[in-house]
Amino acid sequence: MTLPQASSFAPNVDHLFDTLLALCTLVVVGVFTVMIVFCVKYRRGTSAERTPARSHLGVELTWTLVPFVLFMGIFGWSVHLWIRLRTPPKDAQPIYVVAKQWMWKVQHPGGQREIDQLHVPVGQPIRLVMTSQDVIHSFYVPAFRVKQDVLPDRYTELWFTATQAGTYHLFCAEFCGTDHSRMRGEVVVMAPADYARWLQAHAGIGLAAQGAALFRRLGCSGCHDPQSGVHAPSLENLYGSTVPLSDGSQVLADERYLHDSILLPKKQVAAGYAPIMPSFEGRLGEEDVLALVAYLKTRGTQTEKPE
């Protein structure tokens, strides 16, 4: 196999794959051998003994239950790995990805922007927060053995820890229109020191700072400022907190909640507030929303340090 193992998952996934492959090969070889032996031994005209077979409930049950048990074993192993694949660690570094026909736009928290490239350091868990500006795309890095569909108007997440410096292919794996096959890019994995240098060389205005500028420009503080006369929820310590909603339920204020509260403010209204916030749908691109979200996360977050 020429496919590199460049993430912490890759060896585990390959291990499972190889085991299953070996098991399947065993079954294929076994069944084919038996079939060929029967076909030769009992071909028409041979003098093989052909007395009718007897009852065979035991045999049937055996080859029903044995595969079942084996399948459950594989299932258990796979689920164990799957849960890990889907549970980003707390210290994972977020990077934001916006997909559009037909390119990948990446924004680092420090304001570095890239197109069709993603630079990450070795050994640091990375959590990609992804959304699409148009149709469904899929972020696929074969060398990391990870893939996640990227949906419009919703954040999906993908995490990995790169283990080997190098440049790896990035594909769009969900058919997205004419130039789907050109929606490719590369993931550059660098040693931490190189990565730090790269970050510095490409530093722009931090994402949160961009968000703060937008926050002022859009006049958000006109309502959300504590001194404001309008009765609007405070945004301090919002990210990561649990917000009671007007319909009595509760919601964790994650990135998706912040995103939806900006674009679809009526969807989940905080308890005790009138649903008076105007929607910013159509007025803000997904990248702007990401900047705002990054800014809101710096306003006294409970799980992450301000960046």
Binding site: N12, V13, L16, F17, L20, C24, V27, V28, F71, I74, F75, W77, S78, V79, L81, W82, L85, S138, Y140, P142, R145, V146, K147, A173, E174
Partner: peptide
């Protein structure tokens, strides 16, 4: 052969890499 490779795709952790 088709059925057995279906097992790879039924296994969530492998399907992540193989789907699409």
């Amino acid at each position: 052969l088709g059925g057995l490779t279906g097992l790879f795709l039924a296994a969530t952790a492998l399907d992540v890499n193989l789907t699409d």
